Every structure is written in C-alpha cells, then in structure tokens.
Simulated scan of single mutants.
Amino acid sequence: MTNAPILLLGGLGKTGRRVADRLEARGVAFRAASRSTPIRFDWDDESTWDTALAGTGAIYLVPPAEHLDIAAIGPLLARAGDRRVVVLSARGADYAGEPALERAVRENSPEWTVLRPSWFAQNFSEGVFAAGIEAGELALPTRDGRDAFIDAEDIADVAVAALTEDGHGGQIYDLSGPEAISFPDAVARIAAARGRPISFGYRTPAEFAATTPGELGQFLGALLGGIAQGNADYVSDGVRRALGREPRSFDDFVARTFSPEPSEPVQA
C-alpha cells in the first residue's frame, strides 16, 4: 500500500463511519465522498467521479441502498484503475450465482476483497429495526428464523485490515457473529437490557415492504421472508479468517448499546 488516501464511498453509513474512525486513529489518510461532502461523489453524476478518485490508492465501496441496480459500479471501477477495492456485499448474495456487484469488482479491479456480512446487529439500534424497538413492538416476516447477527464493529475491523494490510486480495469473507439466534430472542435480549417489555410480532413480506418506500422495501421484505425459511441459520468464519480472532457476540452488542431506561420520578 502507498500513503495515498483511501476513498470511502458510503463513509457516512453504519460501517463507513466506523472504518473512518479506525483509519483516523491509525493516522491513515482517507476521503469520505458523498453528495453532501466538500469533495462530492454522486452515483448519478459521472462528472463527480474523477475528482473523488483523484490521488487515492484504495476504495471502500458500499453500494447505496437506493441503487439496487448497480450498473454504474463497473464504469466507476474501470476509471479506478489499479486501486485496491474492498466492497461490502451480503452473506448469501451468491445464492443464484456470482452477484453482479461482485462480478463488476472482480472484473475491473486487480486487487479486490469482498465482504459478505450477515444482518447487522446495529439494525436494532440505528437501522431498519430501530423504530420498532423504540416503539416497543417489532413486527417482521422472519417468524422464528435465525440469523448470526454481525457486529458492525467487526465489519469495520475486517474492512480496515483489507484496505491497509497485505494478504486479503482475492478473498471473499463471509462475516457473522458467533451464534445464530432468532429475531424474537434478539428482541427479548434487548428488552431485558432496556428493562422494559418489547414485543415481537409477524408481518408478511408484502406488509413489511409497504413500510419502506420504493424497491428497497420489497427487497428487504423478501430477504426477511427468506430468514423464516432458514436461509440465514448458520455461522460463518470470515472474521476469524481475516483477523485471527472470534467475532463479537450479540450479547456484547446489547450490553454496549442498550442501557436500562431511567425510572419514572416518584411523585411527592
């Protein structure tokens, strides 16, 4: 690796923010580029691409959720030349063959690493499930299906290792936590940490899709429905392969994130 800055595309998201924090702590130069940053990057405006890429030596690529069609990724990476690329994909993305996202990275980048994480533990605190947790009722299409939730801190650790260290090129890391647990169990653990009841209920994939605008709702509804069929009920070894240690547990995440809510003041 050179001392050239690392370009973070998705640097304001759940994993991107954590990658940025780690790079800053290590004294590694980076550039987080988006539509709202001083150096702009817009997937829909190719005139912003070259300025964002200029002078960088590696890319952390998080495809934006609103771009389920990843047709722009190949042309972007073709401009990126010989830069190291670490891309955030998803565990199980290869169920129907090589995903178009990963193929675009592999075909256009001489040194690439693919991260395939399970559902993020942080979805319960800062993602798609957070509103239900706060409201005291989370309803999903998952039934009792289980997932080995990955801590976003572990994703960031693996991403930074792949961006800054040798030995990760050409690797596909399936990332998960150390145990598969059901969504009702996850909610129960959060409720116990919070010290208040939080219920879990069922919502069909179509009903769930209606709560999220556009194609993303349908996409997430289908994924969550697949969990009910047991599609995610397994543990992956990617964190251990990449970092030589075990992944953080869901209980670790809950203990760090959900503290007991304060009691109501006693009326005099």
Rank of each mutant, 00 (worst) to 15 (best):
A121Q: 01
R116L: 04
L61I: 02
A90S: 08
A135P: 01
E134M: 15
R91V: 10
G132P: 01
G74V: 06
D82C: 11
E134H: 09
R106A: 07
Y60S: 00
R103P: 08
W119G: 02
R106S: 07
S118N: 10
Y60H: 06
L76D: 10
L77T: 06
P110V: 02
A121G: 07
R116Y: 00
A72H: 05
A135C: 03
L77E: 03
S89V: 00
G74M: 08
G97E: 06
R106C: 06
V85I: 12
T113N: 09
F124L: 11
R79K: 15
Y95D: 01
R83T: 10
E66S: 10
G136F: 10
P75E: 14
A65Q: 04
L115V: 01
N123Y: 07
W119H: 10
S118Q: 12
A131N: 08
P75G: 14
E126I: 13
D94N: 11
I133P: 09
E126A: 14
L88G: 08
E126W: 09
A93W: 00
G81L: 02
A121E: 05
L115K: 01
A96D: 12
I133D: 08
V87G: 04
P117C: 08
L77W: 01
G136T: 05
P63H: 07
P110Q: 13
Y95I: 05
P63K: 01
R103A: 14
A131Y: 03
E107A: 15
S125T: 14
A65Y: 02
A93N: 00
L115P: 03
L88M: 13
Y95T: 04
P75C: 13
G81V: 07
V114S: 03
V62M: 03
I133S: 13
Q122P: 04
A65S: 15
E98D: 12
L77M: 08
L88F: 06
G127L: 11
L115N: 07
R106Y: 01
A100K: 07
F129P: 05
Q122E: 12
E107V: 14
G132I: 15
P99E: 14
V62K: 00
R83K: 11
Y95M: 02
R79I: 15
P117N: 09
G127K: 10
L76G: 08
V62P: 00
G127I: 02
P64R: 09
A65C: 02
A65T: 12
D94Y: 01
D69W: 07
R84P: 14
A71Y: 02
E102M: 02
D94C: 05
G92R: 00
G92M: 03
A131P: 00
R83Q: 15
G74L: 14
L115E: 00
H67N: 09
I133G: 13
A104H: 06
H67I: 06
G81K: 04
H67M: 13
G81S: 09
A100Y: 03
A100M: 12
G127F: 09
V87H: 05
W119M: 08
W119A: 08
P64V: 12
F120T: 05
V128Y: 05
A100N: 10
L68D: 10
G136D: 10
G132K: 09
P99F: 06
V114Q: 09
V114C: 04
R79H: 08
A78L: 05
